[in-house]
């Protein structure tokens, strides 16, 4: 749709959003990340303000690993970036680990924090692997994948496109026969033996 058309529809859209937010709050019975994100967007939409915060969120988002796993408690990396821009602690992303925390601290000009163990531990990068002989073709894992990295159809064997898999782990639980496991990702950009750092002179 054109932008003029969008503007005329904006109030209606925002009203819908607001209703959704209220509904969501009612369903969850408490303030959640979801309605908070909606709040942020309504603010931006109505006032056209907070551009600085938005700008910051975009910069933070660029530093996140884009695993989209939700371990930070937000539905994806962008909402987490927004929350951090709005002041939430930036130590909740285990896939990014210490490197990401350090990068965000750098950006914000604050000292880095230790990774919050509440949200998980930093580990090696993983990819999902479907033991294809056991897959019953139920398609339950397909909608769970945030990056549509699983290929399959009803009653057909499914498989993970390893190059697109972010290792978020979200597909493991929905599988009724537990044929999906997370295995260490092949180290494609591995430092070869010849690329080891030499010692530095004192």
């Amino acid at each position: 749709m054109g932008s003029a058309e969008f503007l005329t529809q904006l109030p209606a859209a925002l009203a819908t959003l607001a209703t959704l937010a209220v509904l969501a709050a009612a369903v969850f019975g408490r303030a959640t990340h979801a309605d908070r994100d909606i709040d942020i967007d309504i603010d931006i939409g109505i006032q056209g303000l907070q551009t600085a915060e938005r700008e910051l969120a975009a910069q933070i988002e660029d530093l996140l690993p884009q695993t989209q796993c939700g371990q930070c408690g937000h539905p994806g990396c962008r909402p987490y970036a927004r929350a951090v821009a709005a002041g939430e602690p930036f130590n909740k992303c285990p896939p990014g680990g210490h490197a990401t925390i350090a990068a965000i601290a750098d950006l914000l000009g604050t000292p880095p924090l230790a990774l919050d163990p509440e949200h998980g531990r930093e580990g090696p990068k993983l990819v999902a692997y479907i033991r294809e002989a056991e897959c019953i073709g139920c398609t339950k894992c397909l909608p769970a994948c945030p990056v549509d990295a699983i290929l399959g159809a009803p009653r057909q064997m499914h498989t993970v496109i390893a190059a697109e898999c972010t290792g978020c782990d979200l597909c493991v639980e929905p599988c009724p026969v537990d044929c999906i496991e997370m295995i260490p990702a092949p180290v494609r950009s591995a430092l070869m033996a010849r690329d080891q750092r030499p010692p530095v002179a004192a």
Binding site: L10, A13, L17, L23, A24, D41, P75
Partner: peptide, 15 residues
């Protein structure tokens, strides 16, 4: 999908 208010899809999805 195309609206600039890009949290809308997340919201409907979540809800």
């Amino acid at each position: 999908a195309s609206a600039p208010v890009d949290a809308a899809p997340v919201a409907t999805d979540l809800l």
